[in-house]
Amino acid sequence: MSEIIKVDGLVKRYKELIAVDNFSMSVNEGEILGLLGPNGSGKSTTINCILSLLEFDKGTITIMGKEMSPKAYDLKSRIGVVPQEVSVFEELNVYENIDFFCGLYVSDKDERKKLVQEAIDFVGLNEFTKFRPKKLSGGLKRRLNIACGIAHKPKIIFFDEPTVAVDPQSRNKILEGIEELRSAGATIIYTSHYMEEVEQLADRVIIIDKGQLIAEGTVDKLKSMIKKSEMIKIEAKGISDEDLEKLRRLDNIFSVDYDGKYLKVEAGKGNNVVEIIRVLEEKGYKMKNVYSEQPTLNDVFLELTGKELRDD
């Protein structure tokens, strides 16, 4: 896959605050790249620099091999943006909004008519074309927001946290839509602080914090970068401190917590569940439920930065 976006050594300062700190990344054609980081980590700032909306202090940004600038109209015509906020005109109805924003890219009326209808079909707003945005639910507004950003069939689409404050049904619809767009050949840059979404969608993930690249790779690769490989949770009563200490001394065990009912064990790679159950059985403890969870991107983030990814 060829490199469609390349960011090299990007630095963006707001007076004393360094929002993006020597950040480099690349996006391959046709992939979904997840840009993951907590609020204020520099995700949106990076995107806005790439879009040439924000001035930056250092670095280079190229799209399709050409330097991006406010006057790079040929590049801009191939880019679609779905902003974090629902960014539509309240006085125009659904159809008119999509037509207006599509019209910024496509001047031919007939072509635009076709594209607008396709966008409406794509986001499932056929029944609401005459509705003004204030009459739409939060989820439908988000879909309209997406339709306005993709109607002109861009080659590169930036989704900036498109599912914030969206009900699960609309969220699934949006995520399915994004996958469809990728299948149709679009390259997608998806920013979020919802790790589940990024895990579900992204071919590759970049973790960003305090404007710096923390890690990048596929979800599996990122998970393999950390020591912890599973969280084991066992429901068992009356485990003594002495036996807990025995568990702690087992190989691959990083931490053991017990609240009188649930035993929680963080473990590395290996046959951990079997080992733990063997020890507890030897001591005669009765176990009810045993769970084993794989590490999440939040665990990756936690291990790499020492803090939780989601701060809301």
Binding site: S77, E85, V86, Y105
Partner: peptide
């Protein structure tokens, strides 16, 4: 507010579009 990318979402959309700002 309709055209300034730093003031509104709609302004941001128009700013990132290939339409010339003077025209908008």
């Amino acid at each position: 507010f309709d055209i300034q990318g730093n003031l509104s979402g709609a302004g941001m959309r128009t700013s990132v579009s290939p339409s010339k700002k003077a025209k908008i």
